[in-house]
């Protein structure tokens, strides 16, 4: 009885510590960001100029860079991840399922700086020498693929991010597909569905909200990813539609400039960017949760 009560209080205290950590973090960011937000107001988010020397601080290029690189990464990664997860739950022979799943999940354990090095030495030259000539040659007339072949830039960053979030999305999708009861698969097979039709009817359709959750989890990871992106995105705070142009993200500008920030206003602007990043990733998560709950109550899964 007594020991139970003590145990209870200890757990309560530990849970509170986590909460307190979060509150302190937000409070710290808010405090640091306040001067920048006060001088620029909401315009901080919408202005495009970023020139620390002349005290010009606008977060839009970084917001743009973060959102575009992450969404692009999600678009590249989602089909691959969903396909890989389906392969692991429904196609691959039982004996190789676990080893392959393990290998894919291993990718998540690689430090992001290693992805960054790989991006610089392998992916960037590949984009410069193969992807750019192809896309620029065929689609160079569109605003999306114009520009010179730097190698480093939005597309390379998105590709590195895609590789980094694939294990996460694959692992979650795999759990989601595994949780579909076999009797649904039998229902489809039993009315004369082919393998693909069975997967479509009995595996993918009941899993839509789970697939969505997996994608949001991946997106969340991409939004905050710092090191690898900083190494390959080119770090130029410009808004361009072209995927071959260098860009910068909220995380990358903080990583790049915090250590040698010039003066308090610069530091404060970087903290404000951190705050915006926190808000954006929280919004993505809450929005996703809301959508998932809505679709779940609709489909009665």
């Amino acid at each position: 009885m007594r020991s139970d009560r003590i145990f209870n209080w200890i757990l309560r205290g530990l849970a509170l510590t986590v909460l307190l950590g979060f509150v302190l973090l937000v409070w710290f960011l808010w405090n640091e960001a306040l001067p920048a937000l006060r001088s620029a107001g909401l315009g901080f988010i919408w202005s495009t100029g970023w020139d620390p020397v002349s005290g010009d601080f606008g977060a839009l290029p970084f917001l743009w860079g973060t959102l575009v690189s992450s969404i692009l990464a999600l678009m590249l990664s989602a089909p691959i991840s969903i396909g890989a997860a389906l392969f692991l739950t429904d196609i691959a022979p039982k004996s190789i399922r676990t080893p392959i799943a393990f290998l894919i999940e291993m990718l998540a354990a690689i430090p992001s700086v290693v992805y960054g090095i790989w991006g610089i030495f392998v992916l960037a030259p590949f984009v410069r020498e193969h992807v750019h000539p192809l896309l620029n040659g065929w689609l160079g007339f569109t605003p999306f693929f114009e520009g010179p072949p730097f190698g480093l830039g939005m597309l390379t960053a998105a590709m590195v991010l895609a590789v980094m979030i694939t294990p996460t999305i694959t692992a979650v999708c795999r759990e989601v597909f595994r949780s579909v009861p076999d009797l649904l698969r039998e229902a489809a097979t039993g009315i004369g569905a082919t393998r693909w039709e069975t997967i479509r009817l009995a595996v993918i359709r009941p899993s839509i909200s789970g697939i969505f959750a997996a994608m949001i989890l991946g997106l969340g990871r991409a939004l905050g990813e710092t090191m690898a992106v900083t190494m390959v995105i080119g770090n130029r705070p410009e808004i361009s539609l072209s995927l071959f142009k260098p860009a910068a993200t909220m995380a990358s500008v903080i990583a790049n400039e915090y250590a040698e920030a010039q003066g308090d206003s610069h530091l404060s602007a970087l903290a404000a960017i951190g705050l915006v990043l926190l808000v954006v990733s929280s919004l993505v998560n809450f929005g996703a949760r809301w959508i998932i709950e809505r679709t779940e109550s609709k489909t009665h899964v």
Binding site: P181, L183, L184, E186, A187, A188, G190, L201, A202, R205, P206, I208, T299, H300, V301
Partner: peptide, 9 residues
């Protein structure tokens, strides 16, 4: 089948 298995979606 033994257990009813309508497609939930």
């Amino acid at each position: 089948f033994q257990k009813a298995n309508p497609f939930p979606t």
